[in-house]
Amino acid sequence: MDDDLRPIATLLAKPEPPREVELCSRNRLLARMGARPRRRFGWLVPGFGMVAAAVLALVVGVTMVGTTSAPGSGREVLLVAATSAERSPEDPGRYWYTRAEADHSELVMENWVSRDGRRWSRGTPANPDKVGPGHPRPFVMGDVELTWDELQALPADPERLTAWIRDTHEPEDHPAAVEELEDLGVTAADEERSDVVHGLAALITSMPAPSDVRAAAFRALADLPGVESRGAVEGGEALSIPTSWGSEIKLVVDPETSRVSRANVVVGNDGSVLGGRTGYRLTSEWTNQLSR
């Protein structure tokens, strides 16, 4: 480089990428390369998980007594949301529309899915158009891919729903991913629990499940140990739901409407997981407009 350009490099230089950032990116690539869609990838990263676990342990240690079902607790918020979900009328819209906007970049992912399962996408490389009309597996829930019809037929009972996800779970089999799991000491039980939590969270966050199935997913989440309320924020109540190995899913849920307006993790329609450090503003609703 010529000397007169050196001050520009100095002015704009940033620190080396944190290890977890590099791993997250690598895991999105792995998902794209055909490893099974694994939300857990983003969550394997030691940097995210361990700090969150340490903080959570402190909080739980101090406030555990008598808070399990107090009004305004995480569990309570989810149970109220379950009732709201159950009461919401079926919407006659033609397309299920989802949108995720990143807080800190201009990344926006949009999807429209018609009732016959055709999908239109707009957005980023993680949300490619080629999962286009006629793609047979339009939804990713935990590590499970679902067709429209399979989604409509999910059990509407919390325990049976959890059991269904657990039974459908398959251990990772992509060689590069298996290697990474082993390196991090992740057990089969860890994997399974993580997939149940991520699956239930995906169900309430972004999927057009029938009202009674959504309600069951809220109740199943409410029954998980360690769900915490972080108080009222814009758009609803902030919740923290621990997954395996110390990481957490953070959601903002409006208990009155049962809509999820924010999350710290979203899944692209190629199955790759985005998130961890940035948050996402979410929209999910029925519409009659294919594009706007």
Binding site: K14, P17, V21, L29, R277, T278
Partner: peptide, 9 residues
């Protein structure tokens, strides 16, 4: 750095 996380990936 935040935009770089997304764009590099």
């Amino acid at each position: 750095t935040q935009a770089a996380e997304d764009i590099a990936a």
